[in-house]
Amino acid sequence: MHIVIAPDSYKGSLTAIEAARAIQKGIKEVFPTAKITSLPIADGGEGTVKALVYSMKGELQHNHVLDPLGKTVLAEWGILDTKTAVIEMAEASGLLLVPLSKRNPLITSTYGTGQLIKAALDQGMRKIIIGLGGSATNDGGAGMAQALGVRFLDRSRKELPNGGGYLQDLASIDLTNLDKRIKDTEFILASDVKNPLCGKTGASVVYGPQKGADASMVDQLDKALLHYAAIAEKATGQIVANTNGAGAAGGLGAGLMLFCNATFRQGIQMVLELVQAERLFSEANLIFTGEGSTDFQTVYGKAPVGIGSIAKKYNVPVICVSGSLGKAYDEIFKYGITAAESIVSSPESLAYCMENAASLLQDTAKRICLILKIGATLKCEGIRVIPV
């Protein structure tokens, strides 16, 4: 029996790698001789760097960069092969780097993300994958571009300070010193966000409040981004204000399109292609996947449905083991998931479940495999038996 273990991270509890190890331990307690392939997965959000580096036998890198408020932090990124890098913008410009009391998208910047891109270019990378989840910023990617040599100038030809609020004073953009290596580099943005840069469904209105913006700040930020888009159009010839995905990560999507000619890919599809998941799934008898919480949102580009959709083509059963099964979780059954189970078997506090997620996940995998073992001994016509 060949089992592929392909979980996403269990947010706040386990990385995808830790989750895969826990599931494997549970399986091995029941099927000690089973062939197991561990394939930690991510959907372009948290954990993408670690999952891809692990699954592709890459190498983790660390660089000191500026966080959203300009303080130095040590950020992690990955090299996947001789020319391909993967970056999570949240490592340098993420919301979790800013204390709750200091969250202010008028002044937070993506400069550190630009520094990570420069670090990758310095290492000879010419294909850079960037995950756009979890940002603390609303600067349209201007900070990122500044780190790569772009100058954002006011009417006095002075450079603007960092932060989305200052974009309202933008008069011109100078591309003279934009890093020349960018034109020879492919930029792929891993994101499922479809929001435009501006307007009622734009970056400021939809995501600004969770980054610390009140109603007046949201209005100011939205107007600033609209003005930024108009000036950027003059400098680059590109129109981004209403482009799908431009509003991702506080407009970093727009900035990467404007200055790096980046393209968007659905996160989970891109990750599954990179790790050659289809080949592995086609050879498997059974697949385990999982995530922190499975609910109605899972069908919108999350890891389990990406995995299930591929497995369905080869009639390979997929079991989704998640921290919790929420509202309308059974929608995943339309996308190739065969069965779903929660790791919580009795009433427990959330704190307990998060603290003991590894042992709960291992135990759940064991219980599932014990049931599968019963099924393998049944002699009923029409029942597909997985060889043990």
Rank of each mutant, 00 (worst) to 15 (best):
T82I: 01
G131M: 00
L361G: 01
Y352M: 08
G58E: 08
F333G: 01
S322P: 04
A42I: 07
T294V: 13
P7Y: 12
T338D: 07
V30N: 12
D184H: 11
M270D: 09
Q266H: 06
G251K: 13
G251M: 11
L325M: 05
G141P: 14
I3M: 10
V218C: 07
K71C: 02
A241D: 14
L106V: 03
V299A: 04
T364Q: 15
L69M: 10
G165I: 08
T236C: 02
I307D: 10
I343E: 11
Y352R: 06
L95W: 09
D67F: 11
A357T: 12
F187N: 03
P387A: 01
T37M: 07
H227D: 00
H62E: 14
T108C: 12
S359H: 14
L106H: 02
K57E: 13
P209V: 05
T263C: 12
L256A: 15
F187W: 02
N195K: 13
S345N: 09
R103M: 05
L370G: 07
L274H: 03
A224G: 00
V4S: 03
K102M: 15
K366I: 08
Q238I: 01
A339H: 12
G26K: 09
Y207S: 13
S93F: 10
D174V: 05
F288H: 03
N63C: 10
V344G: 07
G44E: 15
E18V: 00
L153C: 11
G133K: 02
I5S: 00
Y329G: 03
Y111I: 02
E59K: 15
T338W: 04
G164P: 12
I129S: 06
T137V: 13
N285A: 05
K211G: 05
Q238Y: 09
P347E: 00
S346P: 08
P68H: 11
L221R: 04
A75D: 03
F259A: 03
A190L: 15
A190W: 10
G149M: 14
G301P: 10
L167W: 02
